[in-house]
């Protein structure tokens, strides 16, 4: 089996997810080559051939041009599989490439079991095995699903590539994430509010528990999107990554994008009315209860200690 790994580069840096692509190639025992629109000053530790597009010419965000470059590489290499990260870069580019190749795309792979491609369904509550009917397959890998025991080593054999095509999208630079406010990464205890809190007033209940535990309060994305908490308090892929001594998830279902930001916490408690909520997968303790009753009571009892 031959595969093309599509690495990512953003804001002047090679992204660490490249190691997950390498781990995947290892798991599949496949021959691989790598594709990157990046820079010679930030090459991956990869022992193999690297097709390198110049980011100075092609741009960091220019999916139509990246697609053209990648299709050239695929035409040369004739791989069986093209592998992306399931990231803002990967889920944007992969379907464009799959369409051009008349290939099936299987999104957000979490495992490969006896050749079956395994993907999550319904917020991770279910899984399915996918059977592909095309010669080539495009896949995107769930962040963190394919890890390496140790950091890879090696030096790639670089072959530079260019294209004459231009894209129809105009990239106008980046806007940094909202700054200022609390720094959750320094907190030893984080108690987070999820959509299960129901209304903005109830965030105070979560903040009170955090205070009783001498920690900070965080939030899941819907709570931030609704304006009930500031973005600096959001935990997850598009917020902060935290690893406190204790993380208490209140009314949070445990979507992969939330888990990615907190699953390294030393001890995890979840409070949820749904016994089957996916947060149970990472929680050391799942308390099946209505947070509106449980949290104030717990806070009171802790204050009384």
């Amino acid at each position: 089996m031959k595969i093309v790994l599509v690495a990512e580069y953003r804001d002047g840096k090679l992204l660490g997810s490249v190691n997950e692509l390498i781990a995947f190639a290892g798991k599949m025992a496949a021959d691989s080559v790598m594709f990157l629109v990046g820079s010679e000053s930030a090459l991956p530790a990869y022992e193999g051939k690297l097709y390198l597009g110049d980011v100075g010419v092609c741009g960091e965000f220019n999916p139509e041009v990246h697609k053209a470059l990648l299709l050239d590489v695929i035409a040369r290499e004739q791989p069986d599989m093209i592998v992306f990260s399931h990231s803002s870069y990967g889920w944007d580019l992969a379907p464009r490439v799959a369409y051009a190749l008349k290939a099936a795309q299987v999104s957000e792979l979490v495992d490969v079991v006896d050749g079956a491609l395994v993907v999550p369904v319904c917020n991770g509550k279910l899984r399915r095995n996918v059977q592909v009917k095309t010669g080539k397959t495009v896949v995107t890998l769930q962040a963190g699903a394919f890890g390496l025991a140790e950091a890879p080593t090696g030096t790639p054999a670089v072959e530079k590539i260019t294209t004459v095509s231009a894209g129809r999208l105009e990239f106008g630079g980046y806007e940094a994430a909202e700054q200022g406010g609390v720094d959750l990464t320094k907190a030893e205890v984080i108690v987070s509010a999820g959509r299960g809190v129901g209304k903005p007033e109830n965030v105070a209940m979560i903040a009170a528990l955090a205070k009783a535990l001498k920690g900070e309060y965080g939030a899941s994305r819907p709570v931030v999107d609704s304006g009930w908490a500031e973005h600096k308090r959001q935990v997850g892929t598009t917020g902060q990554s935290v690893a406190p001594k204790l993380y208490v998830a209140c009314g949070i279902s445990g979507a992969i994008q939330h888990l990615a930001g907190m699953k390294k916490s030393e001890f995890i408690v979840a409070i949820n009315t749904d016994k089957d909520a996916p947060i149970g997968e990472v929680a050391d303790v799942l308390v099946v209860a209505d947070l509106k009753q449980f949290v104030p009571l717990l806070t009171e009892k802790i204050q009384a200690l």
Binding site: L126, R127, N129, E281, V282, L286
Partner: peptide, 23 residues
């Protein structure tokens, strides 16, 4: 271009404790 061969519940890996009952 593809089909679902099988759908199922993920194996519970986490040996986490589940607490239910009086709050």
């Amino acid at each position: 271009r593809q089909e679902t061969a099988k759908m199922y519940f993920p194996e519970k890996k986490g040996g986490g404790l589940v607490l239910e009952g009086d709050v």
